[in-house]
């Protein structure tokens, strides 16, 4: 129990830090601290927590659906597929409303992830390390297509923004889509049992009366929507969906009815922490949270990879 108190305190501390630091000082600025918080600091803090929480949840769903701990949306081509969708809609209808772009990106992300699941069904389960490798290569292929298109139509700049998640551009009026993640998270919680059952495998899920295909599709839709939301508003954040669920699973197992809220909160906290580090490391300049998370997340992933053998399949 004390663990949760400490966790809650840490999150509150992170929020407080995030609200108080930035290029403009909260106390001496002419702009007024209330205005600064409302327009810039609060949106930024909320965006980091929402994006992080959403991606961590998406990671859980992907891991349960393919029964492999070393997978996450970033290792299943989901963000690349979303970018492909965004590129296509940007080329085809540059003036389309944001929600239309969003929807196209989500649909593309869903198709890309569905293809990955198809692929995953053909990868031998005997070696759990193989699937993330396949996912990386698959993401690489999609990425090559995206880069090639962006290059040939001179949209590399857009691509850079989508590929590298950061929160410096987040202000009031430019992040509100992310609140959609809160809705999706609530939806996911109602599915918690079903997703745990997915993790038992297709046969077990079917013999418990779960419509396996439908549940996977539903989970997939949520993952795609979350990833697309994050890519469109702040850009891709690697490893969040991998690192956070793995740590929570190590600490308290995989019964999602109990754990999903913890996963979401920790994901939010982790990304917020990365954003704060990014703001501080070369103050007053900023380093994207995605960069910080890529380095820290990769380090944690490596640790997980090599700490895994004790725990059977990981």
């Amino acid at each position: 129990m004390t663990r949760w108190i400490w966790g809650g305190a840490a999150l509150i501390a992170l929020v407080a830090i995030s609200l108080s630091i930035g290029a403009a000082s909260l106390w001496t600025s002419d702009l007024g601290s209330g205005w600064l918080i409302a327009v810039s600091r609060f949106p930024r803090t909320a965006a980091a927590i929402l994006a992080g929480g959403g991606l961590a949840l998406a990671g859980v769903v992907v891991q349960q659906a393919v029964q492999n701990r070393f997978v996450e949306p970033g290792l299943s081509g989901t963000p690349e597929a979303a970018m492909l969708g965004l590129l296509v809609i940007t080329l085809w209808a540059p003036g389309a409303a944001l929600w239309i772009k969003m929807a196209v990106a989500a649909l593309a992300a869903m198709a890309g992830t569905a293809l990955f699941l198809k692929l995953a069904a053909h990868v031998p389960r005997s070696d759990p390390m193989l699937l993330p490798l396949v996912g990386l290569i698959y993401a690489g292929i999609l990425g090559a297509v995206v880069v090639w298109i962006a290059w040939s139509v001179d949209l590399m700049q857009y691509l850079g923004v989508w590929q590298m998640g950061e929160f410096s551009g987040v202000v009031q009026g430019r992040y509100e889509l992310l609140w959609g993640i809160a809705v999706l998270a609530a939806l996911l919680y109602t599915l918690a049992d079903r997703i745990t059952i997915l993790g038992l495998g297709a046969d077990a899920a079917r013999s418990l009366g779960l419509d396996y295909g439908q549940t996977v599709a539903l989970g997939l839709a949520v993952v795609a929507a979350i990833t697309a939301l994050v890519v469109v508003t702040v850009g891709a954040l690697p490893f969040v969906g991998l690192v956070v669920p793995n740590i929570i699973s190590r600490l308290c197992g995989d019964n999602l009815r109990r754990n999903l809220p913890v996963v979401a909160v920790c994901g939010g906290g982790a990304v917020l922490a990365a954003d704060i580090v990014g703001r501080l490391v070369r103050f007053p300049y900023e380093v994207p949270a995605a960069t910080i998370f890529a380095i820290a997340g990769a380090a944690v992933f490596l640790w997980l990879l090599h700490a895994a053998p004790k725990a059977g399949n990981g």
Binding site: Q64, N68, G201, A204, G209, L210, S249, G253, N255, A311
Partner: peptide, 29 residues
């Protein structure tokens, strides 16, 4: 699906489990 699961229980040969569940959690499912 649900109807079938209330009439037939199956024990398959595949008993690999990647999820971290306690024995009680598993049986509860």
């Amino acid at each position: 699906h649900r109807d079938r699961a209330r009439r037939i229980a199956v024990l398959t040969q595949a008993q690999a489990l990647t999820s971290r569940l306690t024995v009680k959690d598993l049986v509860s499912f």
